[in-house]
Computed example of a mutant assay.
Amino acid sequence: MILVTGATGTVGREVVRLLSACPGALPGVRVMTRDPTRLVGACRAAEPVAADYRDPASLARASAGVRTAFLVTADVGGDDDAVFLSAARAAGVRRVVKLSAAAVLDPGADDAITRWQRGAEELLRGSGMEWTLLRPRSFMSNALSWAASVRSERVVRTLYGTSSNACVDPRDIAEVAVRALTEDTHAGQAYTLTGPSAISAVEQTEQLGRALGVPLRLEELTRDQARAAWGRRYPAPVVEALLVSADRQRAGAKAQVDAAVGTMTGRPARSFEVWARDHREAFGAVPARESGAGSGDTGPGAGSGAGSPLGAGG
């Protein structure tokens, strides 16, 4: 049995979709969410379980009979990882594949989010279970945070528009995760996951505009404007961590490309241009069924990066 936590999230639901393509896989896939009524697509065909990191008894039920778990947590500074790992170990879970972040490798990254991620990794490595760490750069899907302004104003607003990040398509993260969950050769391994090249918000704006067939312009936010915008969504310590992370990106700390996606999947990592083309509908493009163009998942983003929502990346 494989347990997928965060099954309604950007990466989790894609992990379930890919697992569903494996012959006979879904009877052995359990999806964990606080609200099973939110499950859609392939997740509805898997075994649902209602569980919450704040309810250890529900985690024990979710982990019963599980051999391998995909672990996603997002409560910065919280103890979700510790509570889950305790329940998983007691239930006899053999292996945990953890979604972490590339920033943990940067000795210059000492913000609240990265410290929390490092601590979560340490807990897993010391858990006594087999472990695999996935450390993505920022998600390309962070660009979905621009969707409303692109639809209404043809404008992208972001901090430090010319700084580059080797952001990664969440579908690539999910594909690597599925291999780590289903193959026996990844125990004790950590994989840094990036796109094929570093790209700035200016370049993303240009490529997104081409995908939509409309001109877009970028308005660069000041630090105070970014702080105010993020402050409407996140607590103050997280906002300050995001600002420090953006400073690191401007200094070039997030531009390095890693080959792990290609090595693990046997094909090149997807580019932002491909991601933008596949997600045009989220930005107001004519749906594929009318235009004949392809489209992909347009759910909410996760990660920290160009659009600066919270989560994996760094």
Score class of each variant (00 low, 15 high):
residue 305 G to C: 03
residue 305 G to V: 02
residue 304 S to P: 00
residue 187 A to G: 15
residue 72 V to F: 10
residue 91 A to G: 09
residue 109 A to K: 06
residue 254 K to F: 07
residue 217 R to V: 15
residue 104 V to E: 14
residue 224 D to F: 03
residue 168 V to M: 12
residue 37 T to L: 08
residue 86 S to F: 00
residue 195 G to T: 09
residue 234 Y to L: 07
residue 240 E to Q: 04
residue 45 A to V: 10
residue 276 A to M: 14
residue 164 S to N: 09
residue 294 G to Y: 10
residue 134 L to P: 05
residue 270 R to S: 14
residue 286 V to N: 04
residue 228 A to T: 00
residue 178 V to T: 08
residue 307 G to F: 02
residue 47 E to T: 15
residue 246 A to Y: 02
residue 13 R to I: 12
residue 229 A to V: 03
residue 44 R to C: 08
residue 307 G to K: 02
residue 273 E to L: 05
residue 32 M to C: 11
residue 225 Q to V: 02
residue 246 A to P: 00
residue 235 P to R: 01
residue 277 R to P: 02
residue 28 G to Q: 12
residue 121 E to T: 05
residue 132 T to F: 10
residue 94 R to H: 10
residue 259 A to M: 03
residue 38 R to I: 02
residue 4 V to W: 11
residue 143 A to P: 09
residue 122 E to Y: 03
residue 7 A to F: 12
residue 69 A to F: 04
residue 297 D to Y: 15
residue 275 W to N: 13
residue 4 V to D: 09
residue 182 T to D: 12
residue 153 E to R: 05
residue 140 M to A: 12
residue 192 T to V: 15
residue 16 V to I: 14
residue 276 A to I: 15
residue 186 H to L: 13
residue 200 S to C: 04
residue 218 L to C: 08
residue 144 L to Y: 13
residue 130 E to Y: 12
residue 151 R to W: 00
residue 233 R to K: 07
residue 195 G to A: 06
residue 211 A to Y: 01
residue 147 A to P: 05
residue 100 S to T: 06
residue 207 Q to C: 06
residue 247 D to V: 01
residue 203 E to T: 08
residue 163 S to H: 10
residue 167 C to L: 15
residue 134 L to V: 13
residue 239 V to Q: 00
residue 46 A to C: 15
residue 177 A to R: 11
residue 157 R to C: 02
residue 280 R to K: 13
residue 26 L to V: 13
residue 281 E to G: 07
residue 249 Q to K: 05
residue 283 F to P: 11
residue 238 V to Y: 03
residue 125 R to Q: 12
residue 190 A to H: 10
residue 239 V to I: 03
residue 282 A to Q: 09
residue 252 G to R: 13
residue 189 Q to L: 13
residue 278 D to G: 14
residue 15 V to C: 13
residue 243 L to G: 02
residue 105 L to R: 15
residue 201 A to R: 06
residue 237 P to D: 00
residue 308 S to W: 01
residue 272 F to V: 08
residue 304 S to F: 02
residue 57 A to G: 04
residue 104 V to G: 14
residue 101 A to D: 13
residue 180 A to T: 15
residue 178 V to S: 12
residue 292 G to E: 12
residue 287 P to M: 03
residue 153 E to W: 03
residue 19 L to N: 10
residue 170 P to C: 11
residue 91 A to Y: 02
residue 117 Q to L: 06
residue 215 P to M: 05
residue 23 P to G: 09
residue 187 A to N: 12
residue 150 V to Q: 02
residue 208 L to R: 01
residue 6 G to A: 08
residue 51 A to T: 03
residue 209 G to K: 01
residue 77 G to I: 01
residue 215 P to Q: 07
residue 275 W to R: 14
residue 190 A to W: 11
residue 196 P to E: 03
